Amino acid sequence: MHASHRLRIGRYSMPGQIYLVTAVCKHRRAIFHDFAAARAVVHSLHEMNHAAETLAYVVMPDHLHWLMQLGDQLDLSATVQAVKSRTTSRIRQQVGTSIDVWQKGFHDRQLRKEDDLVDMARYVVANPLRAGLVNSVREYSFWDAVWL
């Protein structure tokens, strides 16, 4: 069974549901180490405000963590694909060539009612600290959270 198909098994979209989404760069390349490429992801997330409310995110050098609440009429896979597509288009315009940015598929975790959203948001934005990229999250440019 193909890996991207296994990622979709059991996935279903529930409008209004909160998800933690992880999308990874193709071959785990550190594409978002580049400031403009990381900003392309941030802009794409902001453009999706009609589809999903961003609760927290962090753009790591080779992947994205996105804590979001899906809109009322939308599909999780289509929403994530739209972010990935918009990001890829922006980066291709920046570099002037056709570059594959993302691995196929994504990982998602549907949060349960008992999950503490503040703790989850803190977990998301603390990724650069845990990865040893910075000594404080204040030193990292590519994160945001509505509660912190």
Rank of each mutant, 00 (worst) to 15 (best):
S141M: 05
M1V: 13
R130V: 05
L76Y: 02
V42F: 03
W66V: 11
D62T: 11
V125Y: 05
T97K: 00
P128Q: 04
L74Y: 09
R11F: 00
E139A: 07
K104H: 02
W66P: 15
H43I: 08
G96H: 05
K84M: 01
F106G: 01
G10P: 13
V24I: 14
A121L: 03
F35I: 04
I31Q: 04
I9Y: 06
W143A: 11
L64A: 09
A37E: 10
R11H: 10
R130K: 08
Y57M: 09
Q110V: 15
V101G: 08
D108N: 10
Y19W: 14
L133V: 05
C25K: 03
W147C: 12
M1D: 14
M1H: 12
R122K: 14
A30C: 10
V118T: 14
N127Y: 00
D100A: 11
V134E: 00
P61L: 01
A82P: 04
R122F: 06
D34K: 02
A126I: 14
R86W: 05
H2R: 15
T54L: 09
H5S: 11
M60S: 04
A51L: 07
Y57F: 15
M48I: 09
D100V: 12
S85M: 04
H63P: 01
R6C: 04
R138W: 09
A126Q: 15
V24C: 08
K104P: 00
D100W: 01
K84I: 00
L55Q: 07
R109S: 14
Q94W: 01
A82D: 06
A82Q: 09
S136F: 02
A36C: 08
A131W: 06
V80N: 02
L148W: 15
G132F: 07
N135P: 02
S89Y: 07
L70M: 12
